[in-house]
Amino acid sequence: MRLHPDWRRVLARAWSLRFIELAALTDIILNVVPYVSDYLPWWLTLLLLGGAWMARLLWQPDKDLS
């Protein structure tokens, strides 16, 4: 297994990865810090995961990365 030769460019454009990371962070915050759950809605994690799905399918061009 090897990294893609242009991995920095791929990482800079990977919006789906950013949304997944935000969703994970939001879920951790909601479960670990109960005080914050009064300010963050429960559906925020689902919204961010839906955004990751949309970013992966719609906003990123279909290119051969092999």
Score class of each variant (00 low, 15 high):
residue 2 R to Q: 14
residue 3 L to F: 11
residue 3 L to Q: 01
residue 3 L to V: 00
residue 5 P to M: 03
residue 5 P to R: 09
residue 7 W to E: 03
residue 8 R to A: 14
residue 8 R to T: 10
residue 9 R to T: 15
residue 9 R to I: 13
residue 10 V to H: 09
residue 10 V to N: 06
residue 10 V to I: 13
residue 14 A to K: 12
residue 15 W to I: 07
residue 15 W to N: 14
residue 17 L to I: 03
residue 17 L to M: 08
residue 21 E to V: 00
residue 22 L to A: 12
residue 24 A to D: 15
residue 24 A to K: 01
residue 24 A to I: 01
residue 25 L to P: 04
residue 26 T to R: 09
residue 26 T to V: 13
residue 27 D to F: 01
residue 27 D to I: 01
residue 28 I to W: 01
residue 28 I to N: 04
residue 29 I to F: 00
residue 29 I to A: 10
residue 29 I to L: 07
residue 30 L to G: 11
residue 31 N to L: 06
residue 32 V to F: 02
residue 32 V to N: 05
residue 32 V to W: 02
residue 33 V to H: 08
residue 33 V to R: 03
residue 34 P to S: 07
residue 34 P to Y: 07
residue 35 Y to G: 03
residue 35 Y to C: 03
residue 35 Y to Q: 15
residue 36 V to Y: 05
residue 37 S to F: 07
residue 38 D to P: 00
residue 39 Y to K: 11
residue 39 Y to F: 14
residue 39 Y to D: 15
residue 40 L to Q: 04
residue 40 L to S: 02
residue 43 W to D: 15
residue 44 L to I: 12
residue 45 T to N: 06
residue 45 T to I: 05
residue 48 L to W: 01
residue 50 G to H: 08
residue 50 G to E: 05
residue 51 G to M: 15
residue 51 G to L: 12
residue 52 A to G: 15
residue 52 A to T: 03
residue 52 A to S: 13
residue 52 A to P: 01
residue 52 A to W: 02
residue 53 W to H: 10
residue 53 W to Y: 06
residue 54 M to W: 08
residue 55 A to E: 06
residue 56 R to W: 05
residue 57 L to R: 13
residue 57 L to H: 10
residue 59 W to I: 05
residue 59 W to P: 00
residue 59 W to G: 05
residue 60 Q to T: 15
residue 61 P to G: 04
residue 62 D to Y: 07
residue 63 K to W: 06
residue 63 K to D: 08
residue 65 L to S: 10
residue 65 L to Y: 15
residue 65 L to E: 11
residue 66 S to K: 12
residue 66 S to W: 05
residue 66 S to L: 12
